[in-house]
Design a binder for these strands. Structure first.
Length: 553
RNA sequence: GCGCCUGUAGCUCAGUUGGAUAGAGCAUCGGACUUCUAAUCCGAGGGCCGGGGGUUCGAAUCCCUCCAGGCGCGCCA
């Protein structure tokens, strides 16, 4: 890719930040105290009349220099380098420094969008750094439920987002195909097989009693009947089929993985053994009551945890530490885990284990996704996998649609509990914000279908865009890269949804007031360029969210 | 009991290092289609940001405390 010579020149907020830094340097030479080593972040003013970006740096200066913010701001502004080529107004209001972008800049920004199309903007925050995002990782003991769906949506949107930011992203699913849960799965299948043969069987509460195993037993009875005593075989058989099913569901949900890691491979490669050995060497493990314990209290855990049982079998913690050690060894710059919030108590012990091994814990970010409860026909449903009383993700996708479902999960912060009201989601489907955004996209596509001349959108006279609604759209689009960077740096894909709604709203309003086709040719072309720009930004945003931009509705 | 998360409009939720008069969607009420798709647009009402205390020039945001909800506290994963 040919890199632009002028680098970030098209990014107004970057240039403003740089200008502020220069001004700070200058007033420092005049004897002012200036904040050192502080990243200058711009914010978006709450009101349009306050411009496009604002800085509150003067409030910091006020504290450091014992002068009113207004005075500090004014002095700083006096020392700003010339910005006229892209900023039309710099104003100090109550200590805030407000920057209003100039029209020529906004026009060139649109030109930039039209050049890159849906790929706009090209960001290079990640600078090719490698990120691993591990998510879903549901045990292959039953179909995914709606809670997994939330983690899946967030994980895949976050992956897309970081990829957009110039990170090299790998998406990974960790499969726990070892241990008691898998054993129980095999036992449950065995019981179902015996049931088919007319035997009266009783399930313990720990067994998986969902219909899916009954169906599996019926479908595969012939090939399994010889193996019905071989629990290990049945466990493998069932978990493999279920995993395939899970991955299929996720694919329908727009989620795919670059890598699947199986827990049993960690054992086969002696990684668990080695991790335990190393922990022993690093004095992280001691023996008590015949078991081996991880001294996790040393690093803030509530109590020490068993890592190898009395019977010498390692616990889940052992393989998980081994797994994370292995992930670290692959050399990523950032590791993200997306976990169900019910695992939160598990974090301190894992971190303690990693700390003993001397792994850089700041490279591991764990995003907890809170529970999803479901309301259907006015009733709250439980999500227990074992009892089999849950609404599967597959059913949900079928009922409300992939796009609505993803959007629903992606508008909210991960750490709030979510009540998914299925009746409402279905009933309100046409009013749903996701359709609102898609409709904006479809309307623009429709305009272009209607447009007969079909010229290339080049050499546009963008200065003919003068309507307030047009300027508003230009200003909003100019925020997009800034917004994306904020979402990327904070690992918060949900910021994108509100922005897309706002952009769609500005478009619908424009569409309502201003006729795009049919005016004087140069104006028509400029307007087409404008709405094409809007379409590209919407398409770009929806692509990150994993939602289909629609051509028609 | 202890730990973690949450509490913002009737409902579902946003709210960039603490900053300007707290926002959106839905719902409600009132208006707009001989026009590029009305799945749209415009307007109105609606809030002691759970309560109380504190830090600060400034708090929805930070600290303490209480209340409410969820989750966790296994030699399960």
């Amino acid at each position: 890719m040919q890199k632009r010579k002028n680098g970030n020149l098209w990014r107004a907020e970057k240039r403003i930040t740089k200008a502020i830094q220069e001004a700070l340097q200058k007033i420092k030479e005049e004897g002012w105290n200036v904040p050192e080593g502080k990243e200058i972040l711009l914010q978006r003013p709450r009101k349009e009349e306050w411009g496009d970006f604002s800085s509150q740096i003067a409030f910091n200066l006020a504290g450091l220099n014992k002068k009113p913010p207004q005075v500090c701001a004014e002095n700083l502004v006096k020392n700003l380098p010339p910005l006229e080529d892209f900023v039309e107004k710099v104003e100090v209001v109550g200590g805030f420094i407000n920057f209003t972008l100039g029209l020529p800049y906004l026009f060139s920004f649109l030109t930039e969008i039209l050049k890159e199309r849906e790929n706009f903007p090209r960001l290079d925050l990640g600078k090719g750094k490698r990120v691993l995002i591990e998510f879903v990782s549901a045990n292959p003991t039953g179909p995914l439920h709606i809670g997994h769906g939330r983690g899946a949506a967030i994980g895949s949107a976050l992956s897309n987002l970081l990829e957009k930011g110039g990170y090299k992203v790998e998406r990974e699913y960790y499969v726990n195909n070892v241990g008691r849960q898998i054993e129980l799965l095999g036992e449950s299948l065995a019981l179902r097989l015996r049931e088919i043969e007319g035997e009266k069987v009783t399930f313990s509460p720990d067994h998986y009693q969902g219909e899916y195993l009954k169906e599996m037993a019926e479908t595969h009875y012939k090939e399994l009947k010889e193996k019905k005593e071989d629990i290990a075989y049945l466990s493998r058989f069932a978990s493999q089929l279920i995993l395939e099913d899970i991955l299929e569901t996720l694919k329908n949900f727009g989620v795919e993985f670059d890598r699947i890691t199986y827990e049993d491979s960690l054992y086969k490669e002696s990684r668990v053994e080695k991790a335990i050995e190393e922990l022993k060497k690093k004095k992280g493990i001691y023996e008590k009551d015949g078991a081996l314990w991880l001294a996790s209290t040393q690093f803030g855990d509530e109590k020490d945890r068993v890592i190898v049982r009395k019977d010498r079998r390692p616990t889940y913690l052992a393989s998980d530490i081994a797994y994370h050690k292995e992930k670290f060894s692959r050399g990523y710059d950032l590791l993200v885990n997306i976990w169900g919030a019910d695992h939160h108590g598990y974090i301190p012990r894992l971190r303690a284990g990693l700390k003993f091994l001397g792994l850089p814990k700041e490279k591991l970010k764990i995003i907890l996704v809170q529970m999803v409860s479901l309301i259907k026909e006015g009733k709250k449903l439980s999500l227990s996998t074992r009892k089999g009383e849950f609404v599967s993700l597959e059913d949900l996708i079928e009922e409300v649609g992939k796009d609505v479902c993803r959007f629903f999960f992606l508008t909210r912060r991960p750490d709030t509990q979510l009540e998914f009201n299925i009746d409402l989601a279905k009933k309100e489907a046409p009013e749903n914000p996701v359709y609102y955004i898609q409709y904006a996209h479809a309307r623009i596509a429709s305009i272009f279908r209607k447009w007969e001349k079909r010229k290339p959108l080049e050499g546009l006279s963008l200065q003919l865009l003068k309507e307030p609604e047009e300027i508003k759209l230009l200003r909003l689009m100019a925020l997009y890269p800034w917004l994306l960077e904020g979402a990327i740096n904070s690992l918060e894909p949900h910021r994108l949804t509100a922005y897309l709604q706002e952009l769609a709203n500005a478009f619908h309003r424009y569409y309502d007031r201003v006729k795009i086709l049919g005016g004087e040719e140069k104006v028509e072309l400029a307007r087409l360029g404008l709405v094409e720009g809007v379409r590209c930004v919407i398409a770009s945003g929806l692509k990150i969210l994993g939602i289909q931009p629609r051509e028609r509705m």
